[in-house]
Design a protein around this nucleic acid. Structure first.
Lengths: 214, 214
DNA sequence: TATTTGCTGTGAAAATTTTCACAATGTTAT
DNA sequence: ATAACATTGTGAAAATTTTCACAGCAAATA
């Protein structure tokens, strides 16, 4: 079995989201081909992925939805509540705060940071804001392991260094920059400009491109 | 050579971005290992990718930066200026407008849509806003091929249908929903919640995970 | 009870992606 | 000139990911 691949983890999280979202009034079970259709993958792909979570379905009734959600959660969710830090309270940072807060019971953005004194020492979307100078200190004190980076390119690397100094193990990077981090720190890049350019490319007068991602 | 893979396109766009960003004062050429270090890939990966653009470097001087940028652009950029439509002028939509406008000379978000009459019939970040009822009509008239979707989940599918009816060929989807589209329409999903969950997973007490993505 | 049905779990095959490894090449040093 | 060197472009190998295909099974049906 070894280690579950990044792609599989991503799909598992997706499956869980889809299952939570859809209201399964009548049905309590779901088949791989149904989940596959919802997610945009083949039934075989779904079964392969679900193999890894160690929950086993029934040939006759498929997968029990509640138990499947639970099993995926047991795999991908942290053991206890996790605090997340966000750096850069610009329009993207604020959008993420607004969008994310309250969606998850296990995850919460509990500290935001910015250079602008106008934005610090107050509460935005339920999140307390501090000056960036205090970033390492605060996340270290609170044991925060995950950071979201929404600062302009110019500041991205120095804030990253502060995150790392504060003990962060994973960074979600919205800045259009590649971050330099120690090899044991995970970085997920979400450059919006690149995303637009990519979609524009695949919107071109081309045929037969269709596989979804993200 | 056949068709260039999605992953390769993504990396090529990244290379171009990195090359444009870095100021190459002294140097006019770059080697695969340098570009690889910047992007976080192996030199072999870089060379494979660059093979596909049909621009050939020199063993002694590496790749000419200006020509390389030009060659990648010739491959990934549209032939003429492209207009993009954005649906959902909430915090994410506005953030994307603010962030994107003016960054590219070839791409411009020229029409935004929302249901809220407060937000329509005015200009936000240089972009004219219309009611969603007029979405298909307007993008069809302007020949817009690319859409960015920032509406809440509940509205995502119906706005998608309007995009498709209006002739859109590619959608950048920020809603936490899987969209149903005809097989020749490209969708790139950028669910922020999933991204956070994924990074939290990889921030966990795990060792040896390190490959970057996005 | 026996048969049919349509699913799961999974070994094996296929497809795709990445890396290796090296001949070819142009530059620099002698 | 010639040798030494570091790099490109790429066939081939390796690794990874996806799909196929089918045994085995539980429910439904006869």
């Amino acid at each position: 079995m070894s280690l579950i691949s990044e792609k599989t983890i991503e799909r598992l999280i997706l499956y869980r989201g889809l299952l939570l979202q859809a209201n399964h009034e009548s049905e309590s079970g779901i088949y791989s081909h149904q989940l596959g259709r919802m997610a945009g993958f083949t039934p075989a792909q779904v079964r392969r992925d679900l193999m890894q979570v160690g929950y086993t379905g029934s040939p006759a009734r498929g997968y029990d939805i509640a138990k499947l959600i639970q099993s995926i959660s047991a795999l991908v969710d942290p053991a206890e509540k996790r605090e997340i830090a966000l750096a850069g309270i610009g329009s993207i940072g604020r959008a993420i705060l607004a969008y994310f807060q309250g969606r998850s019971s296990l995850l919460e953005i509990t500290a935001a940071f910015d250079t602008d004194p106008e934005k610090t020492d107050r509460v935005i979307h339920g999140c307390r804001c501090y000056p960036v100078d205090r970033l390492s200190e605060i996340i270290l004190a609170r044991g925060i392991r995950t950071g979201i980076l929404c600062v302009p390119s110019g500041a991205a690397q120095s804030v990253t260094d502060a995150f790392v100094a504060g003990g962060v193990r994973g960074i979600l990077n919205y800045a259009p920059t590649r971050l330099i981090v120690p090899p044991d720190v995970y970085v997920e890049n979400r450059d919006m400009i690149m995303a637009v350019e990519k979609v524009v490319y695949f919107s071109g007068p081309r045929t037969g491109q269709r596989k979804e991602t993200g």
